[in-house]
Amino acid sequence: MRVNVTVNGVPRRADDVWEGESLLFVLRERLGLPGAKNACEQGECGSCTVYLDGVPVCACLVAAGQAEGREVRTVEGLADGGALDPVQEAFIEAGAVQCGFCTPGLVVAAHDLLARVPDPSDPEIREALAGNLCRCTGYEKILDAVRLAARRARS
């Protein structure tokens, strides 16, 4: 089947999509956007988190056909050209990136959190990021990054 979807503001079309494919597969393998990651493909790790009509979801659990006519924003769409989003900058500075496989999903989840809650408490950050597994960092520096991005946004 054919799927039409706006990704990062650009109308895109994917052809010959198998009906059982996920949005994640379409993004990664058909649209050249591998930023959303394929760590578990069952909604248990958050590494494929993308915005679907402005709401963070696991792209692995969205059937490709369900994205028809909708707006998807991936991690590739967060930076403004060469200018990183403040959340992305904070992840780099805080040392929140090790292997980085969880990073795209965490960046999107943190970006969403700070858009909704500009000054989150630590428990709020932890609950908001609890759907994103990280195996390298123990989360400490990811929390640092979110705090840093929030602090910068306030000042």
Partner: peptide
């Protein structure tokens, strides 16, 4: 039927189910 996909897509991704049709 598929809505949030949190069950159906897992079955599809792991080849546990191959229905004739998905009803979105």
């Amino acid at each position: 039927p598929i809505a949030g996909g949190t069950d159906v897509m897992v079955e599809l991704n792991f080849d546990h189910r191959r229905p004739d049709a998905l009803l979105d």
